[in-house]
Simulated scan of single mutants.
Amino acid sequence: MIELLTDFPDNIAAFRCKGQVTKADYAKVLLPAALEKLRTHDKVRLYYEVDQDFSGFDPGAMWEDFKVGIEHLARWDKIAVVTDVEWIRSAVRFFSFLIPATTKLFSRSEAAQARTWVSA
């Protein structure tokens, strides 16, 4: 499941994923919110938190995540990824050179710092 987080500045698309994340989660929650931010701002920041009960992405969800990022590649300004899931941390490190946005990893214990960083 993906949860929209609303206690961020207007130019930040903020989400928390929990449990199993599906393509339907992207279609119902992430895509509409992210596209609305992209419609109303030239540059958008992203806060993406992976909850401790995260169990994985469906293949369709991973594809949707990739598509949203690539289709608007030059429009992302800052990306904060908050997770203790090692394979996600490794993937962010591996692919971050492809993303023109400043991308930073935070552990779950650093969530407050991540919020401050992405908002500054």
Rank of each mutant, 00 (worst) to 15 (best):
M1Y: 13
I2G: 01
E3Q: 10
L5G: 02
T6L: 08
T6W: 02
T6S: 13
D7C: 05
D7F: 06
F8T: 04
F8A: 03
D10I: 10
N11M: 06
N11V: 05
I12G: 00
I12E: 04
A13G: 11
A13M: 11
F15H: 06
F15E: 02
F15P: 03
F15G: 01
F15I: 11
F15M: 04
R16E: 06
R16C: 13
R16Q: 13
R16P: 02
R16M: 07
C17A: 15
Q20K: 06
A24I: 15
D25P: 00
D25W: 07
D25Y: 05
Y26T: 09
A27F: 11
K28E: 10
K28G: 13
V29D: 00
L30F: 08
L30R: 01
L31Y: 09
P32H: 06
A33I: 15
A34W: 02
A34V: 06
L35S: 04
E36F: 03
L38G: 12
R39D: 14
T40L: 14
H41V: 08
D42C: 07
K43L: 03
V44K: 00
V44T: 12
V44A: 02
V44L: 09
V44G: 03
R45S: 13
R45T: 08
Y47C: 04
Y47R: 00
E49Q: 10
E49P: 09
V50Q: 05
Q52A: 11
D53W: 12
D53L: 03
D53M: 15
F54S: 05
S55E: 13
S55R: 15
G56T: 07
F57L: 08
F57N: 05
F57C: 10
D58Q: 14
D58I: 01
P59F: 08
A61D: 01
M62Y: 14
M62W: 13
W63V: 10
D65Q: 04
F66R: 01
K67N: 09
V68F: 05
G69V: 01
G69H: 02
G69A: 01
I70P: 02
H72Y: 04
H72N: 07
H72K: 02
A74C: 08
R75G: 00
R75H: 11
W76R: 04
K78H: 01
K78W: 03
K78A: 07
I79C: 09
I79A: 04
A80I: 01
A80L: 02
A80D: 06
A80H: 05
V81C: 02
V81I: 12
T83E: 02
D84G: 11
D84H: 00
D84F: 01
V85S: 07
W87S: 11
I88R: 07
I88K: 03
R89K: 14
R89H: 08
V92M: 10
V92P: 01
R93Q: 05
R93S: 10
R93L: 12
F94T: 15
S96V: 03
S96N: 14
F97T: 13
F97S: 15
F97R: 14
L98D: 12
P100K: 08
P100Y: 11
A101C: 10
T103E: 01
K104R: 10
L105N: 04
R108D: 00
S109Y: 04
E110L: 15
A112Y: 08
A112K: 13
A112L: 08
Q113C: 03
Q113E: 15
A114W: 00
R115P: 04
T116E: 14
T116K: 12
W117V: 13
S119F: 06
A120R: 13
A120C: 14
